[in-house]
């Protein structure tokens, strides 16, 4: 059967054509094509990886930002609270200090008033006794210049003393 017997001439030409085609394509075509395909596949893989990493990092930074915001809010609250506390404390302390000072001043004033009152009293007593002595001296001097009058005076005093008793 002719169909099933290989033909030498055709085998020869087929071999020549196929090897020549293989040589040409293997030299000039397939390396370029396969390299480009591999490169593109790599590029796409890397791109996907990069996008995933970017997405993850974006999510990460969003979370971080949220955390920072929350932290900031909490700190703000704390600071406000502290400030309020401090305010109250300061006011309290100021009040205490003021009342203590006032008490001190009042006490001091009271003491000095007492003292000046005593001094004034003392002075007054001295002055009064001075006055009395002076008056008495003057009176005695005047009376004693007149014997009659002195006698009358003594009489009178004696009367008085008698009447009293």
């Amino acid at each position: 059967m002719e169909l099933f017997t290989p033909e030498a001439g055709l085998i020869f030409w087929m071999f020549v054509v196929f090897v020549a085609l293989f040589a040409i394509l293997a030299k000039f075509a397939w390396p370029v094509i396969t390299r480009s395909m591999d490169n593109r596949a790599d590029l796409i893989d890397k791109g996907v990886e990069y996008a995933e990493a970017a997405k993850a990092s974006l999510e990460n930074s969003e979370n971080k930002a949220r955390e920072i915001l929350a932290e900031a809010g909490r700190q703000q609250m704390e600071i406000l609270q502290e400030a309020a506390q401090m305010k109250a404390q300061i006011i309290e302390e100021a009040k205490k200090a003021a009342s203590a000072e006032a008490k001190k001043i009042i006490d001091a004033a009271a003491i000095s008033i007492e003292q000046s009152r005593k001094e004034a009293e003392l002075q007054f007593r001295q002055e009064v006794s001075q006055f009395a002595l002076t008056i008495a001296e003057k009176l005695v001097r005047k009376e004693l210049s007149d014997n009659k009058a002195q006698a009358e005076m003594v009489e009178k005093l004696l009367n008085e003393l008698e009447h009293k008793n």
Binding site: P6, E7, I11, F18
Partner: peptide, 11 residues
């Protein structure tokens, strides 16, 4: 044609 496939298989 068997000649052609023969060369291919031979390669």
């Amino acid at each position: 044609n068997i000649s052609i496939t023969l060369v291919l298989a031979l390669c």
